[in-house]
Nucleic acid binder design. Structure first.
Lengths: 232, 232
DNA sequence: CGGGTCGTTGAGGTCACTCAACTCCAGTGG
DNA sequence: CCACTGGAGTTGAGTGACCTCAACGACCCG
């Protein structure tokens, strides 16, 4: 495996504040692995053998309930750390990660984690902040599911997706990876039918534009008003 | 302020694996503060001046929505770390913590955190695991709210409360602090009316026993069956 | 050109919320 | 000691947001 260029990870927050030589050393221990669209990077309940940084592509992380329902935990964008089960003291992955498009990730063996944090103390601090932000996201989601009706939850979810993975185009903000109504339903705790109805209504008002596995936000401002509770 | 006895925190997970002298040093920097029932330890949006370990009592941590609704994030039990906003990179507290009974906490100034983790590397690792466990809890809650109807959510919540703060008594497991139907409603994303109806039904079946701000689980096994989806 | 995934839309049903009235303590103050 | 007040809990009736069930249409890919 060829060496991995430091510039690839210059903007990866997990490495923030580390010296260039330190980053080089970390990269030397990593493998770069390709995950074709549709394949799993890791699976729920599986032993947490590795942790990862996504270099390219997008992943869908979801949990499977005992009765077979899926709940989307989040989508992973390039530059993000994921699969840190071991770091938070778990033996197995709590969810499954699937590539929604062809993706590439840096892979470290989980066994290296204790040594890496021992030699690079900044790593634990950065990871703590990353996990902390995810905790906040999860709490935000709990609050929304507890207090908002479906339409507002969908609006908030789309705005968040646009922020994390939006690509500005002349007609609006495109969500930069294939995403289905079912996905949105599994992020908001509703059904694909309800999502479809809501998006159809919004489309006829010029708020969003759809397509197969595509969502574009044409009027973020109006959508935000909806999300924040404006009735009409 | 008198010195704080090391034995008080012997079982506090956040200090696990630290040498006794290290723990002593950490304790020297802490203050022990009393919070009478009903008072706030910290408030949402307030500057994150301190972080804490609860020594005695119970706290109710909740988020306030813009329109005034409350959502209970969790209850803090003795031995737990809380208020770590600064450690996860926040300037302000994301929620409010209120003492539900007279409580005592160890208090460190947030400014000491960077120095403490630098001198005690185990601290960051332990905190990472604590925050990670909380992230899992939050995700569990999201999954439950997405896929389970109210009755099962309430059952799961009671079982979790019993595990975290249950006191075994001859007739069952008492939840060890005052908790209202409203609290349970705010943990499960429902209304106090629905919680009251469900608990009344369960009480008549001998599953639980109630009282003003009291919940006791008389038949944990049957409750678990309900939580796991047994229909009747 | 078939088969499967994805999306749309209608009709009907229902779970849980809203609104409302009432009861029962616990604590306070006269 | 008792009246008073407010927080907590119970329970009923009605409604509505959303789910379920169902059928169909559109698109992609081999």
């Amino acid at each position: 495996m060829a060496g991995i260029d430091r510039s690839l990870v210059a903007d990866v927050p997990i490495f923030a504040g580390l010296a260039p030589e330190q980053i080089d050393k970390l990269l030397q221990e990593a493998q770069s692995v390709r995950y074709p669209k549709g394949t799993n990077v890791f699976q729920q309940e599986e032993e947490a053998h590795s942790f990862f940084v996504l270099l390219h592509g997008h992943l869908r992380v979801f949990k499977l309930t005992p009765d077979g329902q899926q709940v989307v935990v989040r989508f992973v964008a390039p530059g993000e750390l994921f699969g840190v089960a071991m770091a938070i003291g778990r033996k197995t992955y709590p969810a499954t990660a699937t590539a929604v498009v062809d993706s590439i990730a840096l892979v470290w063996p989980s066994t290296a984690w204790p040594r890496l944090v021992a030699t690079h103390p900044g790593l634990a601090v950065n990871t703590l902040q990353t996990v902390g932000r995810r905790l906040e996201d999860a709490h935000t989601r709990v609050v929304e599911m507890s207090t908002e009706e479906v339409e507002r939850r969908i609006a908030h979810t789309l705005l968040r997706l646009a922020q994390q993975a939006g690509r500005k185009i002349e007609a609006g903000v495109q969500i930069d990876f294939p995403i289905t109504r079912q996905d949105v339903a599994e992020m908001t705790g509703t059904t694909l039918h309800t999502v479809s109805r809501v998006l159809s209504a919004w489309e006829s008002q010029g708020l969003v534009a759809g397509g197969r596995q595509r969502i574009m936000i044409r009027d973020p401002h109006k959508l935000l008003l909806l999300a924040e509770g404006a009735h009409d």
